[in-house]
Structure formats: C-alpha cells, structure tokens
C-alpha cells in the first residue's frame, strides 16, 4: 500500500515540488544570513557605524528581517522557515519603508503574471504554428527563413531586442510613442472593469508584451520544428497515411499532439526564465510589476524585498510546473501508467 502511494504520479510530483521550494528557501537563507559578508551583518555594521550600539542595531535587524540574530544559526533557520509559513517575509527598509514585503510583492505580482503569462502563451501558439510549418516545408526557403531567424532572435539578449525595437519603431520611424506608453496603465486612469481601462491596460502591455513574445518565440519555433520532424518519421504516422486518413487529421491528432508534448513541459520552465527577464524589461518600460520592484530593491540593497520576490516567484513557477505536469498527464496517458520515462 505504502509502496503504491510512493510511486503514485501525483504524490511524486507534489513531493518533488515541495522539495524545490525547500531548496530555494534554504538557499535564500544562506545568501541573506550565512555567507561571509552577508547582508544582515553588513546592515548591522552600518547602523553601528552610524553611532548605534550593537544591541540596538541587532534589535533593528531582528525586526526588519524577522530573524533573531542572538539565536544559534540552526534556530534562526527554523524560525525563518516558521515565519515564511505564516506568509511573513519581513519589512522593506528602503524601497517602501516599513511596508510588509508580502503586501508589496502581492501588489506587483499580478501585473507581471499578466504581462508575462499572456505573452508566453501567445509566443507558444505562434511558435508551434511556425515550427510545424517549417517541419512540413522542410528544406524550402520558408524552413531556412524560420530556422535561421528563430535561432537568431533566440540568442539576442532581451534587453538588446527591446532597445532595438524602441530605436526602430519609437525613435527612427516614430510609429509608436514610447514615452506615453510607459507604466502598466495611464496615470489618472481608475482601475476597474471598464472598457476604457481594459483598453488602456492592453495598450501599455503592447511594448513589454511584444518583447517577451519576440524573445521567447524563437525557442518555441526551433523546438516545435525538431519535435514535429521526429514525430513525422514515426511509424504510426506512416500507418495513418497508409490508412488514408485525411492530412488534417494526421496533422492535428497524430503529429501535432505528439510533437507538442515535450513543449508543454518546457512551457512551465520557461515561465521562470521570462519572469527573470522581466527585471530588465519592466525597468526599460517602467511597467509596474515584480521586475521593476526587484530592480529598485537591487539598487538600494533592500534584501527583505529581494528575498521575498525570489521566493514568491519560485513558488509561482513551481505551481505552474505542477499545472503543466497535470496537463501533460492528460495529454499523454502513458506517463500516468508507468511514471518513469527514459528519453
């Protein structure tokens, strides 16, 4: 019975996810507290340089970081974990003085998830379509165009893509006003479910969103192309053709479904990658979100905020990978049965 539970697909997935969270929590604890020259020590020394007694400085740090500096390291770690479980990430001390980090992150996270999420799904769909097109039109000019272009845009750093686009579209050709489209919505706009507000939000999404789409789409195109090519070479496709099934049905039910499987897993993984890139992109466009918050926190070395963003982002990514796993199990019944696949 226990054996059965341990080998269950869902249980396995959940245990693995929890383990991932534990690793990140531990890593951030070590970065903030246990590394030589760690930020808490630096913070305490700085306060002491400013004329504060050591006792007072430690008190201050204890309140801000929610870690009792006088306790042994092991106890500090346990305490820190306990606070995290309660959702207490400490208080910001520079970016927004005295504000709980949890509140700050939660106010910004939805914007990042919205801008990154929609862009990711959009780029996934475009990439799948173009990748299949390239595979079906193999070795024609369109295939060469798609693969070379895909490889090129996949390798250009997202900041550079953003700057090139601003230069071309905003400054040289003057097609789109860049300065007016900064932020997540226009100043003075009242948030709410009004048509006006939604349109405004979409308009401000356009810049960062299209950068995310552009930087992610190349990878999807290449992955889908090679995955379609290997599906096209499989026996069941030949058999389906021999049975005289219509091309469209082979394309969707046989090739498409199998070829998109490996990409579904990457979709969740790439969420972490794109959210990481949002630090740079949101900064460029002044788009409200965790990226710009992190940028500010880095500039002022506001560690509770940095740590909070890292944790919440990790948890978000892990939840989405779990969702992708469920989706994968639904798309590919084979994994539910055996559980271990060798690739």
């Amino acid at each position: 019975m226990l054996q059965k539970i341990a080998s269950n697909y869902v249980v396995k997935t959940i245990v693995r996810r929890l383990f991932t969270v534990l690793i990140v929590v531990t890593l951030t604890f070590f970065i903030i507290r246990a590394l030589p020259g760690n930020p808490i020590d630096v913070f305490v020394y700085r306060l002491m340089d400013g004329g504060m007694s050591e006792e007072e400085a430690r008190q201050r740090a204890t309140v801000l970081f929610r870690i009792d500096l006088n306790a042994p390291l092991g106890v500090q770690y346990v305490e820190y974990m306990g606070n995290l479980l309660k959702g207490d990430l400490g208080d910001s001390y520079v970016v927004a003085q005295g504000e709980p980090v949890m509140k700050l992150v939660m106010a910004n996270m939805p914007w990042t998830l919205f801008s990154v999420g929609t862009a990711l799904i959009l780029s996934f769909i475009i990439g799948m379509f173009l990748g299949m097109l390239a595979a079906y039109r193999r070795n024609t000019w369109i295939d060469h165009l798609i693969t070379n272009l895909g490889a090129a845009i996949d390798s250009i750093p997202n900041t550079l893509t953003a700057i090139i686009l601003i230069l071309l579209v905003g400054v040289i050709w003057k097609l789109v006003p860049v300065a007016q489209m900064r932020g997540a919505f226009s100043p003075g706009m009242k948030p709410g479910f009004t048509l006006e507000f939604i349109w405004d939000v979409l308009k401000h999404w356009a810049w960062p969103g299209s950068i995310y789409v552009l930087t992610a789409v190349g990878g999807w195109m290449l992955a889908m192309r090679s995955s379609t090519l290997s599906a096209l070479g499989d026996d069941y496709v030949t058999v389906a053709r021999a049975r005289g099934l219509p091309d469209m049905r082979i394309l969707t039910a046989y090739v498409g479904r199998n070829a998109s499987l490996p990409l579904v897993t990457s979709l969740a993984i790439s969420l972490g990658f794109v959210v990481g890139g949002s630090v740079l992109i949101e900064g460029i466009f002044q788009y409200r979100g965790v990226g710009i918050l992190l940028g500010k926190a880095i500039g002022s070395r506001d560690y509770p905020v940095m740590q909070g963003i890292l944790l919440v982002t990790t948890i978000t990514v892990i939840i989405s990978t779990a969702l992708a796993d469920v989706l994968y199990g639904w798309l590919d019944p084979r994994v539910r049965v055996s559980g271990n696949q060798e690739d």
Partner: peptide, 17 residues
C-alpha cells in the same frame, strides 16, 4: 529542480552579495 527555478533571479540576488 535546478532547471525549474528562476535561476536568473537567483543569480541576480547572489550577485548583490
């Protein structure tokens, strides 16, 4: 596990320490 993490963010935080 390492593949899933937002590794660039982690690197950014490490780089500040």
């Amino acid at each position: 596990i390492w593949l899933t993490l937002p590794r660039f963010l982690l690197l950014v935080v490490i780089a500040t320490v």
